[in-house]
Simulated assay, not measured.
Amino acid sequence: MSWVRISQQKQDSLSPRKNNRRLITDQLKIFSTSSNGNQTDHPKWDPGFTIVEVLIAGVLLAMVMTAVSRFSLSALVNSRNQLERTRIEAAINDNIQLLQQADSLLTFDSIPSEDEQQYACNDPPNYLKEQIIERSGRQYVPAPTLKNESNKKLINRTVNTTAAEEIAIIIYSFEGPGVAKVANNNSAKLLHDTEMQNHTEQRVLELNPNFQARCYK
């Protein structure tokens, strides 16, 4: 009995220590739980983009937009120049067809008198010029009247006649669309090698008088 009492007294003396240990352990668990809860409620702060990064992105975007706008503007200008060139070429082709038609209608039999027939046979190119190029002619074909937005005439038509070759040379001169230098379109001379240097383009038509075949019979 005495031994039982002694062991029971020892257990009673040890119980307060165990209770203290349990209490400390429980408090640590509660603190740990509350700390984790605070971390969940308050996440870490995200810094985002800095001012320098935003400025660099803005500069790059501005450079890209500038390049795109330049390409778009260049495409619009080229399209406009191509449209103007198409209009010029169409006007010249129409006028060439009218001249060829007038030449075919100016036959030897259409010349009213023998004196005029003799005059025509003496100088066929000049007679052809008088009848289809000059306003007083019976088969007059006016020059192209195509103009641009500033009401400037785009095409200049001139005629050269050569009695030796017995042909009439009609020259259509125009300033190439999009060039900066203005050329002298009043010149009736063929440009050939200097055509691109002067930024002037030409279309040439050679007319052989239809009636002159009867002059040699």
Rank of each mutant, 00 (worst) to 15 (best):
T50M: 10
I56Q: 12
V64C: 03
L76R: 01
E53T: 01
T66E: 00
M65E: 02
F49K: 08
G58V: 11
N78V: 08
S72M: 11
D46S: 04
F31S: 08
L61R: 08
H42I: 10
V54E: 10
H42S: 06
D46T: 13
T66R: 03
N78F: 11
S74K: 04
H42Q: 09
I56N: 13
V54L: 15
V54H: 14
D46P: 00
G58H: 12
N78S: 11
T33G: 02
S34E: 14
S74D: 08
L60Y: 15
A62P: 09
F31G: 05
I30A: 07
A57C: 06
G37W: 01
T50S: 08
D46Y: 10
A57N: 10
R80S: 06
S34V: 03
L61N: 09
R80T: 07
G58K: 10
M65S: 11
Q39D: 09
L76E: 08
V77E: 04
Q39R: 14
I51P: 06
T33N: 05
P43T: 00
G48H: 06
I30N: 13
S74T: 05
T40G: 05
D46W: 06
S74M: 12
P47K: 10
V52F: 12
S35Q: 14
V68D: 04
F71K: 15
